[in-house]
């Protein structure tokens, strides 16, 4: 997430504009419909933004509806806790959620659908 505070709007067309940051409640999320499925865009208490496929690796619960704390979200169905940064379930549960690069520029959130990450490696 190194470039999410970048001040100017990205020129590259792979970055898709999804809306203003303020439309996402702090410690909350909003859903973005996409061809890749529903994507949950999270905003933490300290205004970091993360995008994950809106499906818990446990039973497919909508993560966007969970309670967000620190950089984690608790799935509303069975309370699995997912680390937003790594997309991984917190121990002792095991599982991985697909992640999407996301950045904020001039108060606007941009999402990239081309480079998604299904494991814990660092996002570009």
């Amino acid at each position: 997430m190194n470039d999410q505070a970048s001040p100017r709007a990205p020129a590259d067309s792979k970055w898709l504009r999804v809306g203003p940051l303020e439309a996402i409640p702090p410690r909350g999320a909003r859903v973005v419909h996409s061809r890749a499925g529903d994507i949950a865009v999270f905003r933490t208490g300290d205004d970091r933004v993360f995008a994950l496929l809106d499906r818990c690796p446990h039973k497919g619960g909508p993560l966007s509806q969970g309670i967000v704390f620190d950089n984690r979200v608790a799935c509303p169905l069975h309370n699995w806790v997912i680390d937003l940064e790594a997309g991984a379930a917190c121990a002792p549960d095991e599982g991985q959620v697909q992640r999407f690069p996301v950045r904020v520029a001039e108060g606007t959130v941009y999402l990239c659908l081309q480079d998604s990450y299904a494991n814990g490696e660092a996002l570009i």
């Binding site: 898709l16 504009r17 999804v18 809306g19 439309a23 996402i24 409640p25 909003r30 859903v31 973005v32 419909h33 996409s34 061809r35 890749a36 529903d38 865009v41 999402l111 659908l113």
Partner: peptide, 11 residues
């Protein structure tokens, strides 16, 4: 009602 709607439709 706003927060019940998707933020956007992309891609």
């Amino acid at each position: 009602a706003r927060e019940f709607l998707p933020l956007a439709q992309v891609g």
